[in-house]
Design a binder for these strands. Structure first.
Lengths: 336, 336
DNA sequence: CTGAAAGCGCTAACAT
DNA sequence: ATGTTAGCGCTTTCAG
């Protein structure tokens, strides 16, 4: 029996008699045989693996997304190669040198701005890219509708009767932050509420674009220093910052829902603990979709680059003041 | 100039004149050339990538470890293939079918018990395995000294004057839990303190071996139901459970350091928020070491399988009662 | 020191 | 339907 035939059954080629097919299969099974992925890859010019470039710092978010990615990828018999970018400035250098080129059939960028020349090069190599948590008109993007989300969050606060609402932001350099601020503005406008510039603060920290507890803590202190003209409620651009803000509030001897209500964004694990009202992002599902999208491209889809927006969902807990009683028990664990 | 020569310079083969070497290098650079990893892998019988099998649920711990692994691996020019095991029962099936066999030079198992036949098979294939956060006499293992850690934690509580100390455990099926309980016992013994069996509770939950907030919450309620014979301090086998325990304490209208002190284990991110005193595990460093160990094996080390223990470090915050004042500011962010 | 040729394990095109 | 053969892109003898 020729080696070619074996190859055929392994690749489900039609021209193989059922007899030989089963014979090959059983013998392969008995020998515990598996085709060598590299040899196959070389011959087929396909690696059956995709690269995920992630900023390692946004832990909870990216873990959830990756869970989704990996789960879909496993189903597709693809491997996930993880590449953590610690210093955003080194993205290109790193990805170049790593000769990730011929090693993967596609690449996923999470929460990262892709360098222009990188896009060009991968374009030339016909290696598709899909973005997660960022957006670009010329690439497939999977992201959350930040404007809408912030809008919803703000409306919630408004519906609770708040008038003096502030927004505590991370760095305005961050695209999601800009969008979230925009949503806030829209909602305030629509409600005919004044936006006091004093109450709209943002970070100029270079550390993680201001997505840190410290940033939330410091900015909240500023807000609190406003004294009687402080806001009665604030929207915070991320849960992690909200945690810092809550800290500042507590430290100032104030009570969270009563003296000042807060709504976060993300619904990271911590949020449940803090009983933080927030906008949930369907991270796992975003990961699954991203994997699907990259697959479509790999399989030759020529559709124009598409947006794949997800709508964040308002999770009402206690920091907004809408629910003041304690629960009997903690919320159920996320399904693992 | 022959293809062979090119190959030689790429592999730093000595027999190449500096003249041709630089010539090849510059031209390669100009063409933006990179050797094809699969072709190279096929020829050299080496993939230059390692597999990390991780249980996706233990998020924070594994992210940190992986950060370490990846950082070292990148340095070694190795790729990291991530495989998330959601259902522990499927480990072998999954890894078999994935034909991970010839695809990686080594495998890392995080927080997981490796199936026996898996070990045998990889042994036969000469693909080295190293364990992280678990132990096996016949494999290299990188882990934390749980006995010592629990001992230290318990001693801390004892030094604070506590006599009625309890321990709240996850499932006794978990190796780390057993070890932590052992450390607790030793410390109590050495101090001549009685261990009230009522105060040593453990979970029989099958969900994540009881490493959940709910588990901590429920077990703490049991402890609290003891009324006046309740412990004045408890050691909890993990931070995540400690968070649930704190919840139960609060819900019962009790105050944490005052009515009952608690010390956790792990130092997950959450711990800072909760101001939880806990035992820190050097997760990143464990990852780095694991990567180094696997590299040694790949490079043919024949040393007998070795233990690589790390000693956990006591992090004193407020739930133990040793520091009662609030901080001026939150602790600095972990370096990312 | 360098060129030529065989081979890594598989796929795909071409015969039969 | 199946056997044969020529690559896939690189490494590695073996000559020279």
């Amino acid at each position: 029996m020729g080696i070619g035939t074996v190859s055929r059954v392994l690749n489900n080629h039609p021209n193989v008699s059922l007899a030989t097919r089963t014979r090959v299969l059983t013998i392969a099974n008995r020998l515990n045989w598996q085709p060598h992925p590299y040899a196959r890859g070389l011959a087929k010019q396909k690696t059956n693996s995709i690269l995920a470039a992630v900023p390692f710092y946004s832990t909870y978010f990216f873990v959830e997304v990756l869970r989704g990615v990996q789960s879909k990828l496993a189903e597709m018999e693809y491997d996930l190669i993880l590449y953590g970018i610690n210093d955003p400035h080194h993205i290109e250098e790193v990805l170049k040198k790593k000769s990730m080129r011929m090693r993967v059939d596609g690449v996923l960028f999470l929460s990262m701005t892709v360098p222009e020349n990188f896009v060009e090069e991968y374009n030339r190599l016909k290696i598709p890219i899909v973005l997660v948590d960022t957006k670009r008109k010329d690439l497939d993007s999977v992201y959350v509708e930040n404007v809408k989300g912030a809008h919803t969050a703000t409306n919630h606060l408004i519906s609770l009767g708040h008038k003096r609402i502030g927004m505590l932001n991370a760095s305005m350099r961050s695209q999601p932050v800009q969008e979230r601020l925009e949503g806030f503005r829209q909602a305030m406008d629509e409600a005919g509420l004044e936006i006091d510039p004093q109450l709209t603060v943002s970070s100029n920290s270079t550390i993680l674009d201001g997505f840190t507890r410290e940033c939330g803590y410091e900015l909240m202190k500023e807000l609190l220093n406003l004294g009687s003209s402080r806001p009665t409620a604030i929207l915070v651009s991320s849960d992690i910052q909200a945690s810092g803000a809550l800290w500042a509030i507590e430290e100032a001897g104030l009570k969270c829902p009563d003296d000042i209500a807060v709504v976060g964004f993300d619904d990271i694990e911590l949020a449940r603990h803090l009983r933080l009202t927030t906008m949930r992002q369907p991270m796992f599902d975003m990961g699954v979709l991203a994997a699907r999208k990259i697959e479509e491209r790999i399989n030759g889809s020529q559709l124009p680059p598409a947006d794949n927006p997800f709508v964040p969902e308002l999770v009402i807990r206690e920091t907004c003041g809408a629910r003041r009683e304690h629960h009997e028990a903690p919320e159920p664990e996320m399904t693992a």
